[in-house]
Design a protein around this nucleic acid. Structure first.
Length: 766
DNA sequence: GGGGGCTATGGGGGG
DNA sequence: CATAGCCCCC
């Protein structure tokens, strides 16, 4: 018998240790922020392995690849390399991996494509068009979310029609044909051999539920121990899959769910707190452990977070507490404009770095919407503070990346219509919209994919020879794919298609950037292929194209993080869940923004926004700074919002409500001409809050008067609400002015259309 | 069939 | 403000 050390148990507090040691039967862990949740999860897996459970009998499901990766590496630290054999991944990636083997049993090719959100939208748009419905009434996003939520609630198109509530809702919204679109959408995806994100869950459920060839028993017996992280974020469908795997006659029901109802922030994609309550009903023998001690944050922060979350009616009773010192009160920054907010936050970061010796990577700026990142970027750049933005447009969503990927998708799965449409005329080969529409129509009539159409139907089109050239190209790619790995195919595709040549011919800065991105993609494919060989273990390695495509479709930018770089983190509050930083800035705390205007009319959604705010607050270990602006550019215009209601929910005991800062005006000249109310930031001498008496020029946006376009002439000094002061270099005959804004760092010279721009002429000595 | 430029429209969080 | 879609012209 081998010697096994359980010394890791000594690193846990009583309740954590109980949760880790209770290996058999259903377990529920309610884990407050910073309460050592990940530690409990990983040690639990380690403990299972040390007690003789085979790693491949353990399945842990998380929501992000990052969480899965961290879990694996932390398990490895305790039990060594056998951690690799634990099935740890996101719901989507684990199910995709299984479907890659089993999909043929339920009518999909094993080489199925994963449609991302853009692909789904494109399919829906096409359907709406083909049905001659008004695209304004049949809003693409609205339809997509109806379909998505139907799938997440296991409502098939047939059942959708029978569901009065759904049908009435659609009628009320003047979209009675939604169910038809849903049905067509499902058929189209199936015919294209494509699964959207919801399908990865739904088809997994179908596989288990319909159980062809007793495939369900295969996975039930394999996954003897199931762990689910962030259970509060699961939707109905995800829970039903979990039940398929563990909830059956004779099962030991070894399922452990970990979550925190107070951090449930994904109801918009179907997550339901109801699952936690239902879990207790479904598994009455459940052992419940509440982790309430917070090890992360100082007590001011913990107290403030408790104050806020107490405003929510719906919650599981618990008391989060900490033994940590008081620390510092929460700081509040108030400014006149969003631009000023960016500046004050950047100032404060410099100040904190100096005073507390913080590294960039210990600091995060959290916002409600990704669109808010820009002002912070500008000001961080200005002070030479390295930063990294997460979210927004991911690398894989860039055009040049998606273009090459579309070739690869089409190679792996010729039925992939979305990929086909993307590349049939890219690079330009003279196959225009008219021809593509014709192909689409034939495809509809014969229920064929576009590739099948061009290969089998005699097309009467001028572009016929060009189409045949394209078909030949794809065939050569397929041939290549049979003999080579994903990397070689990708390089071949990039060259053969003409994409490389096209990008090379564009010598602009952007064009060069696109070429670099493409090369970066190729590098990442190479890495994928090589890593795969290294990891050769008992699972058959698969460096095929579809495997690679699956991996990256399910990957987000966050998953590519390079460790060790010292960057300030900019991300949405949603993306910050599970992370922690010494110093956190929660910005844009205004009504209509945080809480979002979308949530204002619905008390349940306000509660979700509050939980989101709670998540934001509890990311901070030592320093927490909140900010809001009285005015900001929103939807292309200046808006004036009240401070967020959430700010009032923090008592004066925990927030330093005195540090009032005011704007020094919309201009932001660093020369000091308009900004002498700002703290000096050069050299080592930094201050935190300028005192009230320190205020100088105050410029209320309301005082800003737009000068008529016709009055703006060459040589004039003008003021722009966003760019600040500028000099008009020239005005051309189309009424486009070239204006030099000295306050703008990267591209001070802007070309502005006078008929739209809001500019105020200012006197020379302003 | 392709490209440029104007106009209308939407606008959240993410796997 | 960004982008999709449309119209017009080549």
């Amino acid at each position: 018998m081998q010697e096994v050390s359980f010394s890791y148990l000594d690193e846990l507090n009583d309740i954590q240790r109980q949760a880790v040691s209770c290996l058999e039967g259903p377990v529920m862990v309610i884990a407050g922020p910073g309460s050592g949740k990940t530690r409990v999860l990983t040690y639990r897996v380690a403990h299972l392995i040390n007690n003789g459970v085979a790693p491949w009998n353990i399945l842990t499901l998380t929501f992000t690849n990052k969480a899965a990766k961290e879990m694996k590496s932390r398990i490895e630290k305790v039990v060594g390399s056998s951690a690799n054999k634990v099935w740890a991944g996101t719901f989507h990636s684990i199910f995709a991996r299984i479907l890659r083997v089993e999909a043929h049993r339920i009518g999909y090719p094993n080489d199925f494509t994963i449609y991302d959100t853009d692909d789904s939208k494109s399919v829906i748009k096409e359907i709406i068009k083909s049905m001659n419905l008004d695209p304004k009434v049949y809003n693409n996003n609205a339809i997509r979310s109806r379909i998505s939520s139907a799938k997440s609630n296991l409502i098939t198109p047939k059942n959708y029609v029978k569901n009065e509530e759904l049908m009435n809702y659609d009628k009320m919204n003047r979209r009675p044909m939604t169910h038809v679109i849903y049905e067509k959408y499902v058929n189209k995806c199936l015919r294209a051999g494509a699964m959207d994100f919801d399908d990865l869950l739904l088809q997994m459920f179908r596989l288990l539920y319909q159980n062809p060839d007793n495939v369900k028993q295969k996975y039930q017996s394999q996954f003897r121990y199931l762990l689910v992280d962030e259970f509060q974020d699961t939707n109905y469908l995800q829970y039903e899959i979990i039940k398929q795997l563990v909830f059956y006659e004779g099962s030991d029901k070894n399922v452990c769910i970990v979550g925190d109802d107070a951090q449930s922030i994904y109801s918009f994609r179907g997550a339901t707190i109801e699952n936690i309550l239902q879990f207790e009903r479904d598994f009455p023998s459940v052992n419940t452990f509440k982790l309430e001690q917070n090890y992360r944050s100082t007590s001011y922060i913990v107290n403030a977070a408790n104050e806020v979350i107490n405003y929510n009616k719906k919650q599981i009773e618990k008391k989060i507490w900490t033994e940590r010192l008081e620390g510092q009160k929460i700081k509040l920054i108030r400014t006149m404009t969003d631009n000023e907010e960016g500046k004050r936050v950047a100032d404060t970061i410099i100040e904190q770095k100096n005073r507390y010796n913080l590294q960039n990577k210990e600091i995060a700026i959290l916002y409600r919407t990704n669109a808010q990142s820009r002002v912070f970027e500008e000001h961080l750049r200005r002070f030479n503070i390295a930063y990294r933005i997460y979210g927004g447009l991911s690398f894989y969503q860039r055009k040049e990346i998606k273009d090459l990927l579309a070739y690869l998708r089409l190679t792996a799965n010729p039925k992939d219509n979305e990929a086909f449409k993307r590349v049939i005329n890219y690079p330009k080969r003279g196959i225009g919209n008219t021809t593509v529409s014709k192909l689409l129509q034939i495809g509809e009539e014969h229920e064929m994919s576009l590739m099948e159409v061009v290969m089998s139907v005699d097309i009467q089109a001028r572009a016929k020879t060009k189409i045949l050239g394209f078909v030949k190209l794809i065939q050569s790619l397929r041939q290549k794919a049979e003999q080579s790995n994903a990397y070689d195919v990708a390089v071949y595709a990039a060259r053969k298609s003409g994409i490389i040549d096209l990008l090379k011919s564009d010598t602009s800065v952007e064009g060069q950037g696109r070429l670099e991105n493409l090369n970066a993609l190729l590098d990442s494919i190479k890495e994928f292929v090589e890593n795969d060989e290294l990891e050769a273990g008992e699972e058959a390695t698969d460096k095929s194209l579809s495997q690679f495509l699956q991996t990256i479709t399910l990957m987000t930018d966050q998953d590519n993080e390079e460790e060790g770089n010292d960057n300030v983190t900019l991300m949405s509050t949603h993306a910050a869940k599970g992370l922690e930083f010494k110093s956190v800035f929660v910005v844009g705390l205004e009504e209509n923004l945080f809480p979002s205007f979308m949530a204002l009319s619905n008390p349940n959604q306000i509660e979700e926004e509050r939980r989101l705010f709670y998540v934001a607050l509890t990311r901070a270990e030592e320093h927490l700074t909140l900010s809001y602006a009285n005015s900001r550019y929103q939807f292309g215009q200046m808006r004036f919002n009240d401070p967020s209601r959430f700010l009032e929910e923090i008592s004066e005991d925990n927030i330093d409500n005195i540090s009032i800062m005011k704007s020094s005006g919309p201009g932001k000249s660093s020369s000091g001409r308009s900004g002498f109310g700002e703290p000096k930031l050069l050299g080592n001498f930094k201050r935190l809050a300028p005192t009230k008496t320190n205020l100088a020029l105050q410029m209320d946006p309301k005082d800003f008067k737009v000068s008529p376009a016709s009055s703006i002439k060459e040589g004039m000094n003008v003021l722009h609400l966003k760019f600040g002061k500028g000099v008009v270099k020239s005005v051309d005959n189309r009424n486009v002015a070239t204006i030099y804004f000295s306050g703008v760092r990267d591209t001070p010279e802007k070309r502005i259309m006078l008929q739209y721009a809001k500019l105020q002429i200012i006197e020379d000595d302003a």
